[in-house]
Design a protein around this nucleic acid. Structure first.
Length: 560
RNA sequence: UGGGGUGUAGCCAAGCGGUAAGGCACGGGACUUUGACUCCCGCAUUCGUAGGUUCAAAUCCUGCCACCCCAGCCA
């Protein structure tokens, strides 16, 4: 019996792996003494949930193998980068719960990049090209036709040395010269057709200022930076697969590192109804479609955090989706599951009414109140409790009353009974409508013997409620996805800009129990049966604001 | 039409020659003072496709098909 259980458990542990973990494990088994990874974003925008996958993989692998992981800013393009993004990235990584061993900047390696390029020149493996950008493009060839060699390809080492120094010294205008790796203009891999590795660019870098007027390209800076940091496993996304031969070429030919890094690629994260492109996200911010990078609708880590997704849920999600090489689109329901699961165990249960409907208890005297105890976590006394006054006038959810309900409606109906959570069973004895026929109030009586905890008859439905005397007005923001459903025949396959969901935000004015007033930003609660909500920093103690994190499963809603 | 990748259920994803893990979603049931949670049960005779090798193929071989990435002085 015990043996069997153990065997099954061990088997489960064995299968919890992915190909990258297997690879590192076998590297370690083969004698590699060190595991060093890095997460290398360019600080040109905010990180999103897709980056969380890369963060979890890079930091996670280091953690699993007792190795180290650096946070490196891949800042080799001064035109796009900013310190604002650096700070946001640091906050996001910390928020996810990871600690970097070193905070690095590609810009700190500029001198070493330069020296590495000089080595290539001395070896006759790099040359200064005088062609214009257009000429370079035109002579690169096409997918099917080889490129043609530049007239400047066979300059002498001396000439290249002098010219490259002059480039650095600022003797040439932007775009007039580049340094190219001398590889093979006929290579079937376009990345190997003498790629540009340095360009002249006069832009003030957010860190190095105007120290440099030449900047290394990603294809050169990245492998060299990895090698400088002693990275053992350079884990990146699939689109860099074609660049790997160049990566290896650079490290090998500069030749300074006996134990060079190796690149391994995995599929980037895509998710249904979600935009996963810095370019589009930046567009949404710039054109005012959202309030900013941290708008709770945004899939950015800052947005997700503000929405109320707990970092542990993101980490769990990244575990759950696995690591592989096939392009895939993960169902956002999986993320929501992780969020619900995490919050279900941690978020206090609170009463709030999103769309209020007045209930009057006709056999309860006016001006009389009774304290009702509400547990923070039913079944867990240690989590504490608070009270709210039960009185003659209460608010319930407008959707919880139906004048003429279908068969399986368990909530309030004319002549029907329900329990008010933690309070009494009430019976509907009438309701009032306005001129348009809309229900504006429900009249009930309560059963004095049915106080919560009492052994009386069971009723099918239990409603959440807020007493009119204690209710605090709150602004409640109900968020939906930024994009229309993927299977919408109207917009399927279209560009993001044509798939924007016009109803991604609904603001309603609800009533919440007093314990919810003045809550701290970031705290999440379960509003009974409605969903999880997070206190937003926009709120005040008098008028709190809550963002819906995710809804609860609702089998009744599904029936309808 | 060049090169590099990938195809296992509605969606992720294990599997690496011995007879299709797991999760999400979905359906059914139990429980319930949240129609939540939890707990049971069900959910691929078949692995893009057509052949071949083998006692045995998702796994090996061959052909074909589909999808993704690459022609920035972006990363």
């Amino acid at each position: 019996m015990h043996n069997e259980d153990n065997t099954r458990e061990n088997a489960a542990v064995e299968t919890g792996r992915n190909f990258i973990e297997d690879m590192i494990a076998s590297d370690v088994a083969a004698g590699k003494m060190r595991v060093q990874t890095r997460f290398p974003p360019e600080p040109n925008g905010y990180l999103h949930i897709g980056h969380a996958k890369a963060i979890c993989i890079n930091f996670g692998m280091a953690e699993k193998f007792g190795g180290k992981c650096n946070l490196r800013m891949d800042d080799t393009n001064p035109a796009k980068e900013d310190i604002e993004y650096v700070e946001a990235i640091k906050r996001n990584v910390e928020w996810l719960g990871f600690r970097w061993d070193a905070l690095c900047f590609a810009s700190d390696y500029y001198e070493k990049h330069y020296e590495s390029a000089c080595i290539l020149i001395e070896k006759g493996l790099a040359y200064v090209d005088d062609q214009s950008g257009e000429e370079i493009r035109a002579t690169r060839g096409t997918l099917t036709a080889p490129g043609t060699e530049s007239l400047w390809r066979n300059r002498s080492v001396e000439e290249n040395r002098v010219l490259f120094q002059a480039m650095r010294a600022g003797e040439f205008p932007d775009g007039s010269k580049v340094l190219r790796a001398k590889i093979d203009m006929a290579s079937p891999n376009i990345n190997m057709r003498d790629p540009v590795i340095y360009r002249v660019l006069r832009a003030t870098h957010y860190r190095s200022g105007d120290d440099w007027c030449i900047y290394p390209m990603y294809d050169f800076a990245h492998p060299i930076s990895d090698a400088i940091e002693g990275i053992t496993h350079s884990l990146c996304t699939l689109e860099f697969e074609d660049h790997r031969p160049l990566y290896d070429w650079a490290v090998e030919n500069v030749g300074l590192w006996p134990d060079p890094p190796h690149q391994t690629e995995f599929a980037r994260l895509n998710m249904t109804r979600t935009i996963m492109s810095k370019r589009y996200l930046k567009m949404l911010v710039d054109n005012g479609s959202v309030a900013g990078w941290d708008d709770p609708r945004m899939p950015t880590l800052s947005g997700i955090r503000r929405r109320g997704f707990p970092p542990a849920a993101i980490r769990r999600f990244c575990e759950m989706i696995g690591v592989a090489k096939s392009n895939s689109v993960v169902d956002a329901a999986m993320l929501e599951y992780c969020v619900r699961d995490e919050l279900g165990a941690k978020a206090h249960r609170m009463m709030a009414v999103v769309k209020p409907l007045k209930v009057t208890i006709e056999n309860w005297p006016e001006g009389v109140y009774e304290d009702v105890v509400l547990e923070n976590m039913p079944g867990d006394e240690a989590a504490g409790s608070r009270t709210m006054r039960f009185g003659r006038e209460l608010w319930i959810e407008a959707d919880d009353f139906m004048e003429d309900p279908p068969k399986k409606f368990f909530r309030l109906r004319p002549d029907g009974e329900v329990r008010l959570k933690n309070a009494y069973i009430i019976k509907c004895v009438g309701f009032d409508v306005d001129e348009s026929g809309k229900v504006i109030g429900v009249r009930c009586t309560y059963d004095p013997d049915s106080k919560s905890g009492a052994e009386v008859r069971k009723v099918k439905g239990t409603l959440h409620w807020v007493s009119a005397a204690d209710a605090v007005d709150a602004e409640i923001r109900l968020y939906d996805y930024l994009l229309l459903p993927d299977d919408d025949p109207e917009t399927a396959g279209k560009d993001f800009s044509e798939r924007m969901n016009p109803n991604s935000l609904e603001v309603v004015h609800g009533k919440v129990e007093p314990a919810l007033a003045g809550r701290n930003e970031g705290e999440s609660f379960q509003f009974m049966r409605i969903g999880y909500f997070c206190a937003d920093p926009d709120g005040t103690p008098e008028k709190p604001v809550f963002n819906r994190v995710v809804g609860l499963k609702d089998s009744w809603a599904k029936q309808k």
